[in-house]
Structure formats: C-alpha cells, structure tokens
Amino acid sequence: MTTLEIKNLNHHYIKGKPVLNNLDLSLDEGEILSILGPSGCGKSTLLRIIAGLEKEKSGSIQINNSIVSDYFHTLPTEQRNIGLVVQERALFPHMSVIKNVMFGLKFHRQKKQEIAMGLLKLFKVDKYAHNFPNEISSGEQQRVAIARAMAPRPKILLMDEPFGTLDHSLTHQLRFETKKILKDNKITAIIVSHDFDDAISMSDRVIVIENGSIKQQGTAKDITNIVREKSIDFSSISEKS
C-alpha cells in the first residue's frame, strides 16, 4: 500500500529560481527512504512541505490515499499525522524527558505514561525519564526526540539530518538501533541527509536530489554501485553542506 504520493511538486522562494522542480515521489508502507543531496538542493524544503510547514507553489501530496495538499486545500501540519525529528532535536526544555514523549499523546495520564515509558525503554533512555533535556547527552537527547516523534504512531516519520550533530561512533550506533526500531514497528520514514553513510545504512531506497529534481534513485545497493562505477565523491557533497 502506498503511504505517500507526491505529484508534480514545484516550489520556489525567488521567482525563476526553482527549489523543487516537477518532483514525483511515492513511498510504500513500512519503507524507509533516504533523500541525499548537497546543501540548498531542496531536500529539507521537500520535508517541510510534506510536513505542511511550508506550502508548495503547485503539485499535490497524498498521505494514505487522501489528499493533504493541492491547489484547492491544505491540511495543517497538526492534522497530517506525521512525526518530525530535526537536527537540533528541539526537545521542550521546560519539560522532563517523559513529559516530552507524552506531549503528543491524547490518552488518559496513566496510558500516556505507559506508552512513553515503553518507548524510552526501547531507546534505552528510560533511566532519564524524569531528567530535563539539558541534563542528558546529545545522543540521549536524539533518542528522546525520535521516541517523542514515534509516540503518537504517525503515518510517516520525517527525519531532517537526525544525526548531523553527533560524533561518528555515536552516529553509527544510533543508525543501527533506530533502523531496527523503525523496521520492527513497521514505521514508514523519510530521512533527509547529506551524509552518504547515513543514507545507505538506514534506508531501503535512496534518492539523490540536485537542483530540485531527482537525479538518481534506487535501493541502497544500487546507489552504492552507481557511486563505485562513476567514482562519485560523496564527501564533496558533505563538504558543500
């Protein structure tokens, strides 16, 4: 079943300089898609448009076969049932870790606590449940941010450079754990990154965006082969970013 369907998506900030150019994209249930590309290629804009944080200039977006945005109407972010994880983590600093995870849940208090604690255990941060975000490390903060986004069981989890500020060994560990949790829970996810390793190790499929259009797409294995065959230096993409 198709979870996300994007058709003819166009967007620009300055007329004549398109950020997204006639972009088509679909995503199946439980699939993890990575979007790769240099800084300014439009990958984060695409994520913000899917989330409803920005309105596209033209095109349509469907989530679970219902239109969430087209020329005639736009469903606000809060009604799209998506989860969002950002590079800065954006944990609510005045709330404890568990309250952050409970924030998006609409049940009675005990049920909310149960769900939140379950997720914190899954991400191995349950011992910090009553700490405040500034009292835990950046890796732990990122785990909490992902747990919070997953708590309301969104139809799609959108992750914008989720491991961008973490050190190498921590990134490696978190990639592995996050992928396992996403797969075990059959969560559809889009990961935006400029890091080739992030994209290859986390996802089922990878698309490469350049100048607002999809330049390459395929499975993680396909893309790795293309990179090897054409000797593309992905470190240059990272450097540009």
Binding site: T77, E78, Q79, I82, V86, F103, K106, A145, R148, A149
Partner: peptide
C-alpha cells in the same frame, strides 16, 4: 513550534 505542530499542538 514545528515539532509541536507535528505532535498535533497548534
């Protein structure tokens, strides 16, 4: 704000 909106709070 973005995250709060994705968590159905606006």
């Amino acid at each position: 704000d973005d995250v709060a909106r994705s968590l159905k709070t606006s």
